[in-house]
Design a protein around this nucleic acid. Structure first.
Lengths: 347, 347
DNA sequence: GCAGCGCTTTGCAACGATGCACCCTAAGCT
DNA sequence: AGCTTAGGGTGCATCGTTGCAAAGCGCTGC
């Protein structure tokens, strides 16, 4: 009933525990017939090494933690999938933890839990993590953060250039001849993504010699569809509603677009909509969603590789080394929500 | 540098290792001043119990594995989120594993890996797991499967009544006056969900005294948007295209709907569309998507509770007990894709 | 005949925590 | 005084695995 151990296999094969271990670990100096005998015993008993014990002994788990706010936000789900893949090819398993944006949980996971559960490293996409929290971090497993921050705090980051991307998105709307351009997704409390994108948004106005109408900057609590919908409703109730809107996430954009369409507006004729993230939903929405598309594959790959590099470096006990800021590419993907329908053709 | 252990704390507090352990585990008979002294040492050193060691000793990990095909399929992401929550309130951590629908990985995870990584239990939503694989399962951690199966194999299941739900969806389309009703999502190889929904679909035809036009049953490889899009394209190329389509997942429906709209059809006037799963996307799509809405919260809760019940029962070494089939509720949610727009009002 | 080498196998300690049994002290009882 | 009892603390073995060091064996070379 209980799972068989090395001892059980050893007994059955008539060898020592250590020899079974050697077989399991492909140690070179094992006689062929011994190996065969042991292997047979392993197969018969259905032996599988107990990773708990192995990890305890080895001091590493080959497990990475991925800390995200919400799994059912498609951007995180898509990213999670890529990260899991990337980690798997490197021989690591990924444990996902949801924080629901709770600062305490984020902090715990990044600063402490790693030692408890014994992850070899942590990849986190924090919503509200503060600088102090990171600095108070006890030396534990290496951490890579996803998403640019205004501060650096000596932690590795992987992100796109949010300021530039937001600016490009806004400039693109200007280039379409739009003038009353709104932004949905501002967060005054934020030190992260929201702030950077707001800076980029304002930068485009400055470059165009235009003045930002503060009424057109809508703050949201979250980046979900419903927040985008509520924000859009407010914008459309203004005396002078916008003719274009830059949403700081695709979910916001989808919610906003839904409300605009439900009110009988045409997108993009009456209102151009641009999102951020390039989630799959946007490619199948009607109209399809123009968006800033961060290269998620590169983000996932960079994050995993950088983390593993840190893990390996820790073994060699080299000097702490500088923190690394990795910039991932992105591109503007133009679709129907700004450009109108091109063809009515097939699939 | 290295994480502090019980020994380090004991040394610092001037007590035995055992006493520190007692403090950590809230053992009653510890003098207040001793407890305070130990606690101080714990705080100063930043000690956290090593779960690996603890679990090795205790023989359980308080970890559940959740095995899903793809995390970026919203249905699974939404379900995962609920399951994680449910498990957390019960004191369990969930490790998610993606199989990409690979039968081998599914089998490994459900039948073997559990012992390796030492999960206390496994919740799996298998795509291609076969009956034999389950029967060959070595006694290991308890398993709860999500999704009804044609076979039972003595494993606990949680699912809605797929046959009845599919039948209701189809009958609803009949009730709208539609007659050329297509189905997207058939899978001839399948022994699972696809087959059950096909049965329900056919059942509605039988009840209506109608004959199924086999050309209107479209088989798909996966349940993604792109498969729905491709299937729809084929249907629309038929000499007599359908006037309604029942898609076996919301993603299929969204893909199908997209193609219909792109070809200039009106939904629902020219084509009524109904999906399955009630993912959030459908509530914000244009038109919003009518769908069968399984009660995901109940599914998550039932699965976690049933699994934990098994885990606890295993301790008491009672008799194996019968396998349990839990039926979760569902309902038909009517939205614009079958009913047309009701209001063009605000949010 | 023996040192020395390469291959094969092994026993013991250790990773960090908890279960168990035991010891010690002081108080409460007969 | 001698006993029990409750409270408070400890040492040792153990979970399943691997690192380390060494032992046994047969062979070669001198």
């Amino acid at each position: 009933m209980a799972a068989p151990t090395l001892k059980d296999v050893a007994l059955r094969a008539g060898v020592s525990v250590r020899t079974v271990s050697n077989v399991v670990n492909d140690y070179v100096y094992v006689a062929d017939d011994t190996r065969a005998r042991v292997q047979a015993a392993i197969d018969e008993l259905g032996y599988r090494p107990n990773l708990l014990a192995r990890n305890l002994k080895l001091g590493r788990t080959k497990m990475l933690a991925l800390v995200v706010p919400e799994l059912d936000v498609p951007y995180f789900a898509e990213l999670a999938r890529l990260i899991i893949h990337e980690a798997r090819t490197a021989g690591y398993t990924v444990l996902i933890d949801q924080t629901d944006g709770d600062e305490r949980r984020e902090r715990e996971l990044v600063t402490e839990d790693a030692r408890g559960v014994n992850f070899d490293g942590v990849i986190a996409s924090p919503l509200s993590l503060t600088e102090e929290a990171l600095e108070g971090r006890r030396a534990s497993a290496p951490v890579v953060l996803l998403g640019e921050r205004l501060f650096a705090a000596g932690v590795d980051h992987v992100a796109i250039d949010n300021v530039r991307a937001a600016r490009e998105a806004t400039e693109y709307l200007f280039s379409l001849g739009r003038r009353r351009i709104a932004a949905i997704g501002v967060q005054h409390e934020s030190t992260g993504t929201a702030k950077l994108r707001t800076i980029g948004f304002r930068g485009a106005f400055a470059a165009a010699g235009a003045v930002v109408d503060e009424d057109l900057l809508v703050e949201v609590g979250h980046y979900h569809r419903e927040d985008g919908a509520a924000a859009m409703a407010r914008l459309l109730d203004l005396p002078e509603p916008p003719d274009a809107v830059f949403c700081f996430s695709d979910l916001l954009a989808l919610g906003a677009q839904r409300v605009a369409l439900a009110r009988g507006l045409s997108v993009p004729e009456d209102l151009a909509v641009i999102g951020f993230d390039d989630i799959e939903d946007g490619r199948y929405a009607t109209p399809t969603l123009t968006t800033i598309s961060p290269d998620k594959a590169v983000i996932a790959r960079s994050a995993v590789r950088q983390l593993i590099a840190r893990i390996d470096a820790a073994d060699e006990a080299a000097e702490p080394a500088q923190s690394v800021q990795i910039e991932a590419p992105y591109r503007l993907v133009v679709r129907e929500s700004t450009q109108g329908r091109i063809s009515t053709g097939g699939s």
